[in-house]
Design a protein around this nucleic acid. Sequence first.
DNA 1: ACTGTACCCTGTAGGC
DNA 2: TGCCTACAGGGTACAG
Length: 277
Amino acid sequence: MGGRIARVEQRRSDLRFPFPEHFAERLENKTVSSLGRRAKYLLARLSSGEALVMHLGMSGRFTITLPHQGKPRQIGEYTYDTGADPAHDHVVFTMEDGTTITYNDPRRFGCMLLIPEEDLDNHPLFAGLGVEPLGNELTADYLAAKARGRKADIKAFLMDQRIVAGLGNIYVCEALYRAGISPKRSANCLANASGKPMPRAERLVSAIRSVLQDAIDAGGSTLRDYRQADGTIGAFQHTFSVYGREGEPCLTPGCRGIVQRIVQGGRSTFYCSKCQR
DNA sequence: ACTGTACCCTGTAGGC
DNA sequence: TGCCTACAGGGTACAG
């Protein structure tokens, strides 16, 4: 925090979107005043008044290499293996103290944008976002109000960033399992006829919170690409109850169900049809 | 206003 | 071995 960006090496013209005009120039010699996050976007506020907005997409990764660790992945000089192919190192930030922050993204579904800080809240990327899942705004009342009258699957409802910002496929599957809710139910099962929350809405809020907190405590879920900034992998994938467990027994004590895989909205859903109702 | 589909791109795993 | 398909932590632009 408070570090100055000395140099930015941008190795291609676009990721998901084109890089901003004069991207490197607008970052170099600026100080990072704070780091933050909104939904799945990372934010670095700069002394210029602009914010560097970054999204990792499906396969994006930042690796931080401290000066004493040497240049990352230098050929013939082993430092440590981050599991990333240097061919997909698209941006390298070098800080004043020599720390490098390398953005690697094989699929290039990530993006980087520069947005004036005062415009962030009204920017199209942020204006419509739903509540933070670990914040106080995620309540059974909130979910019930949003879900009322919605016929779409509750799975799709929870994946919608305009409802809850930051839930992805894994954590939605795991949260629905913990809450004992079938992913095929309509979203409006969270509310009664007058829009008040059903008991399952309370269970869902608790499940979302506990899944995310457990995943954070375990260092995240590394299926293939995800790493922490020092290259270490997460451990939460070992704790999945349903995700990726098609055909395996349900882990709920006493439940003799088998985990099913179905496709909803073009994405895999894993669930137990016996204890998720 | 909602809902479903196609698509962006690359890598990997599994079937033949 | 190689070739083919399906699939992957996400999000958007459409058509209906």
